[in-house]
């Protein structure tokens, strides 16, 4: 796989001055960071802090008002839509919080996984099905469920199916919007375990948005804390969580319930 480009020192995604306004209000303002190949960046913050807006801007679902996004040295805002959509089908993946947003509920599990393959030109049924079966195995879905529709799956299975569907084309950059939200803790733990394994094995770069500090502690290398649309603190995950500097980060860390 061509996960690590010739210059691993160059950032895969470089963001500066990113601003998105909703009329007079700000969605996110003046956000900047670099994401290196194989790195996992966590974004935490309370509801309404601009996490999802930021992610949507990065993934091309929304158009930012200001700022620059360089992906692999190319300016995303200047890229024609054809190219951007091709990137989002091949190089990128987006895991939604609600698997129903990311899956085709009327299409079988195999078809869901195969869609991205067919979108990039796969036209051999046997190979598509083989690859779909392989990926279902990797996300621990039994092979005999390949022709079942996602509506017949449990929430955890749907989320795992969504992950398989996104990773099948071997993306380099994965956006995750609260991938464990809405799942009970034991299922969450297994999903996190799976994600950690996949991220490490495939060397993925990941931007993961969550309000669950345990998730970032487990997955993220670096952490960005957002409040009211702005980044208030960023650094290595353990550093930020163990020695929070900003008042809001301190509040966030101390708010976590200890069992």
């Amino acid at each position: 796989m061509t996960l690590h480009s010739a210059f691993p020192a160059a950032p895969l995604l470089s963001v500066s001055g990113l601003t998105k306004r909703y009329g007079a209000r700000i969605g996110c303002a003046d956000v900047g960071f670099d994401l290196y190949p194989g790195e996992v960046l966590g974004i935490v913050g309370e509801s309404g802090s601009g996490k999802s807006t930021l992610l949507a801007c990065l993934a091309g679902h929304q158009v930012p008002d200001e700022g620059r996004i360089l992906y692999d040295g190319r300016d995303l805002r200047a890229l024609p839509e054809t190219e951007r959509r091709r990137l989002s089908r091949t190089d990128w993946a987006f895991v939604h919080q609600n698997p129903r947003d990311g899956l085709r509920m009327g299409v079988s599990a195999g078809g869901n996984v195969g869609e991205r393959l067919m979108a990039v030109g796969a036209r051999h049924y046997g190979q598509i099905r083989g690859k779909a079966a392989d990926w279902l195995g990797r996300v621990e879905i039994a092979a005999d469920r390949i022709d079942d529709r996602p509506s017949a799956f449990s929430g955890g299975m749907q989320q795992r199916l969504q992950i398989a569907r996104n990773l099948v084309t071997g993306p380099r950059l994965v956006f995750m919007d609260e991938p464990t939200g809405g799942l009970d803790v034991s299922v969450q733990a297994r999903l996190l375990d799976l994600l950690r394994g996949l991220v490490r094995d495939l060397g993925l770069s990941v931007i993961i948005v969550t309000h669950d500090l345990a998730v970032v502690r487990l997955l993220a290398d670096r952490l960005m804390v957002m409040k009211s649309g702005r980044v208030v603190e960023q650094g290595l995950t353990d550093q930020v969580l163990d020695d929070p500097q900003h008042a809001y980060t301190q509040l966030l860390v101390s708010s976590v319930l200890q069992v």
Partner: peptide, 14 residues
């Protein structure tokens, strides 16, 4: 972007 059309045919075969 006509990959979806093949998803329909895939579903038929499956």
């Amino acid at each position: 972007e006509y990959g979806l059309m093949h998803v329909k045919l895939y579903e038929d075969i499956a």
